[in-house]
Amino acid sequence: MPTVEKVARTDAGLASELRLSVMRLRRRLANERHPDNELSLNQMAVLGALYRAGDLTIGELAGHERVQPPSMTRTVNCLEGDGYVARRPHETDGRQVLVTLTDSGRATVLADRARRDAWLARRLTDLSPEDRAVLRAAAPILERLAQKD
């Protein structure tokens, strides 16, 4: 039976280790949500996309989150009903509607991020400066991996 160290030397082994580590970290970060935040992770992802990218159409949001437009429409309807987003007419295409964050949606995103960032920042202080430097270098690489189709 190969050791973990030997398995990680292959691309398949590295893929397996990264998958497991990233999924565990994602689960830990998901658990750090504010207890009063009743929004689903999918709903929070939509708010986050709007915060980062600005106003988007349903189709753009669906593409960003890799879901079908009818699913995104349901998510946006719920978020709109709860006051987290609003719809407004597209400036140049009368057939399109843009989804925009409300003040409540923006505050929810910022509070959620602050809480999770604080948890992760505390965890990072337990690491050596060398380990933090490795993570600093790896972060943009992981982001590129996440963006590839």
Rank of each mutant, 00 (worst) to 15 (best):
T3P: 00
T3Y: 02
V4S: 08
V4G: 07
V7Q: 08
V7D: 04
A8F: 06
R9E: 03
D11Y: 11
D11S: 11
A12K: 03
A12T: 01
G13E: 02
A15T: 12
E17N: 11
L18W: 00
L20R: 14
L20M: 14
V22Q: 12
R24T: 13
L25F: 06
R27G: 11
R27C: 15
L29D: 05
L29R: 13
L29T: 14
N31L: 13
P35Q: 07
L39I: 00
S40N: 03
Q43E: 07
M44K: 01
L47K: 01
L47R: 01
L47Y: 05
L50H: 02
R52T: 06
R52P: 02
R52A: 10
G54T: 08
L56F: 07
L56H: 01
T57P: 02
I58T: 10
G59R: 10
E60I: 04
L61G: 00
L61K: 03
L61E: 10
A62W: 03
H64M: 11
E65C: 07
R66S: 12
R66A: 13
V67N: 07
T75G: 02
D82K: 04
Y84L: 01
A86M: 13
E91I: 01
E91D: 07
E91R: 08
T92I: 05
G94H: 08
G94W: 04
R95W: 03
Q96N: 07
Q96W: 05
Q96T: 09
V97M: 04
V97F: 00
V99F: 00
T100Q: 00
L101E: 10
R106N: 14
A107G: 08
L110S: 07
A111R: 12
R113T: 13
R116E: 14
R116C: 14
D117L: 14
W119D: 03
R122D: 15
R122I: 11
R123A: 14
R123E: 15
T125V: 14
L127H: 05
L127V: 02
L127D: 12
S128K: 10
S128N: 07
E130K: 06
D131L: 09
D131V: 03
V134W: 02
V134Y: 13
V134I: 08
I141A: 15
L142T: 05
E143M: 04
E143I: 04
E143C: 02
E143T: 06
R144W: 04
R144M: 12
R144K: 11
A146L: 09
Q147M: 05
